[in-house]
Structures are given as C-alpha cells and as structure tokens.
Computed example of a mutant assay.
Amino acid sequence: MTSRATVARVAAPAAFLLAVTVAVLLVRSGLRAGERPAGSSGAVVAPAGGQTVSVRAGDTLERIAARHGTSVAELLRLNPGIDPIGLRAGRRIRVK
C-alpha cells in the first residue's frame, strides 16, 4: 500500500468523527438557545412584599402549595413567568 493510501485510510475516519462532533455541538447549542446564559441565576424575581420561600431539591409547585396552604394557581399568579417544570433548588418564589 502506498503512503498516500495509508494517510487517506486514517484521515477519512478522523475527518468524519470531527464533522460529527461539530454537528453535535451545533445541535446542542441550538437546542439550548432558549435557556438562560450559564452565568445568570435563572431566578424569577418575586414581586415585592409577601412571603417568599426557597425551592428545595425535588420540590414541585404542588408540594410547595400544600406545604404553605395555597394552590398552584395562586403560586403561578404570584410568580409571573415562573416555569413550573424548570424549578431549581435555591430559587426564591412568592407564596403569599
């Protein structure tokens, strides 16, 4: 086998893997386009006044509502823009 054929035999799979890696990174960044930047806290600013609580790991709006004697609808009203599916531990939300 010639030297050129050997280089092509090694370079082709390497080029393919590089292309696939770049494609995966581009798709992942496109899917994350709607997320907040990594440096942001992602916190929803609770309106002034009232009682706020910090979300615990594993909390749902249903658990928080039950713990504080309110409803999920009321939590959503008090915290406009909150993502009920994307609750993160440490986020402060208004409960009253």
Rank of each mutant, 00 (worst) to 15 (best):
M1K: 13
M1T: 04
M1P: 03
T2Q: 09
T2S: 15
T2K: 14
R4F: 09
A5Y: 00
T6E: 10
T6R: 15
T6A: 11
V7R: 15
A8N: 13
R9I: 00
V10C: 07
V10G: 00
P13N: 07
P13Y: 09
A15Q: 03
F16N: 00
L17K: 04
L17Q: 05
L17M: 13
L17E: 03
V20S: 06
T21I: 05
V22K: 09
V22G: 10
A23Q: 10
V24Q: 07
L25G: 14
V27S: 02
R28A: 11
S29G: 08
L31A: 09
R32I: 01
A33I: 11
A33L: 03
E35H: 10
P37R: 04
G39D: 14
S41R: 06
S41K: 03
S41F: 11
G42L: 07
A43D: 15
A43Q: 11
A43C: 01
A43I: 00
V44I: 15
A46V: 05
P47D: 06
G49P: 12
G49E: 12
G49V: 02
G49T: 03
Q51F: 05
T52N: 04
T52W: 01
V55D: 04
R56K: 15
R56Y: 04
T60D: 04
L61W: 08
E62Q: 08
R63C: 00
I64C: 11
I64Y: 04
I64H: 08
A65L: 12
A65F: 14
A66N: 13
A66D: 14
R67P: 01
R67D: 11
H68A: 05
G69F: 08
G69E: 13
T70H: 06
S71K: 08
S71H: 01
A73C: 02
A73N: 07
L75A: 09
L75T: 01
L75D: 09
L75R: 07
L76P: 02
L76I: 06
L76S: 03
R77I: 00
L78S: 03
L78M: 12
N79E: 14
P80Q: 12
P80H: 08
G81V: 14
I82E: 07
I82G: 10
D83P: 03
D83T: 00
D83A: 14
D83E: 11
P84W: 09
P84L: 14
P84Y: 09
P84C: 09
I85V: 10
I85D: 13
G86C: 03
L87G: 12
L87F: 00
L87H: 09
R88F: 04
R88T: 14
A89N: 04
A89C: 02
A89R: 09
A89W: 05
G90M: 06
G90C: 13
G90D: 07
R91F: 13
R91S: 12
I93L: 15
I93P: 02
R94C: 07
V95D: 10
V95T: 11
K96I: 02
K96F: 07
K96W: 01
K96P: 14
